[in-house]
Amino acid sequence: MDYLTFEKVTKRFGDVSVVSESSLAIARNSLVVFLGPSGCGKTTLMRMAGGLDTPTTGTIRLGGEAIAGPDRRRGMVFQSYSSFPWLTVEGNIAFGMRYRDDLHAHQRAERVAHYLKLIGLEDFSKSFPNRISGGMRQRVAIARSLAAGSDVLLMDEPFGALDALTRERLQVELRQIQAEEKKTIIFVTHDVEEAVFLADRIILFSARPARVIKDIIVTKILGATRTLAARESQEFFKLRNEVLHLIRKEAETVR
C-alpha cells in the first residue's frame, strides 16, 4: 500500500533545477534508500518529505495528507550535529516528548527506558554526547525521533562520518530497529555498498537535476533478513556491481 507519495514533484533553487519531475510511492514499514551521485538532489527530495523544503511544483503526501511543513511524524537524522550537546543521552531521547501533552510523566519515562534499551545505551544514559562515540550519537538521534513518535525516519547520510566497522554495525542495527519498531525509513547515501546492504528498495537517481533512473526491489534479490554474512554472498556482489556500473555511468555524464 502506498504510504508516502511524491506526485510530480520538482524543485528549483532560483535558476537551478535540483529535482526534475519525480513521482514515487513508498510503502509503509519499508526501508528505502535514495542513492545517487553527490549533489544530485536526492537530499532535497528527502528534505521536502520532511517539510523542511517546499516543492516548486507537485505534492508530497503522507497517508493521503499533503505535507505542509515539518512535524513530529517525520523525524530527521543528520550526519553531524545530530544530537544536542547540552543534553544527556536520556535528555536527548526525551527531548521531542516535551512537545507532546498526550503523554504522562511515567509514560515518558517508560518510553525513554524502552528506546535506551533498543539502542543499547542504558549504561550511558547520563552521559553527554561529547563523551560518547560518533556511532552512539547517531543511535541517540534515531532513538530521539522514535521516542517523539515519528512514523517516518528521514536519514541524511547518517553514517557518513563513521569508521567502517561502526558503520557496518549500525547498518545491521538499523535494519533490526526498523523491523522491531515497524517504521518507514528513507535513507540517503552515495555509498553503493551501504545502499545494497540496507535497502528493501533502492531508488537510483540521476545527476542533478535528480530524476529516478532505476527502482530496484532489493528484497526480491537478497531477501528480507540481512546478516553480515549476506555481505559476502554472490548475490550481494552481483547487485552491488550492477548498481555501481549504473551510478558510474551516471556520474560520467556530468563530467
Binding site: 523542511l52 515539518p70 512535524d71 530527521m76
Partner: peptide, 12 residues
C-alpha cells in the same frame, strides 16, 4: 547549527 533548528522542528 541549522541542523539543531531543523531537528527541533521535526520533533514538533
Amino acid at each position: 547549527p541549522h541542523e539543531y533548528v531543523e531537528i527541533a522542528f521535526t520533533l514538533g
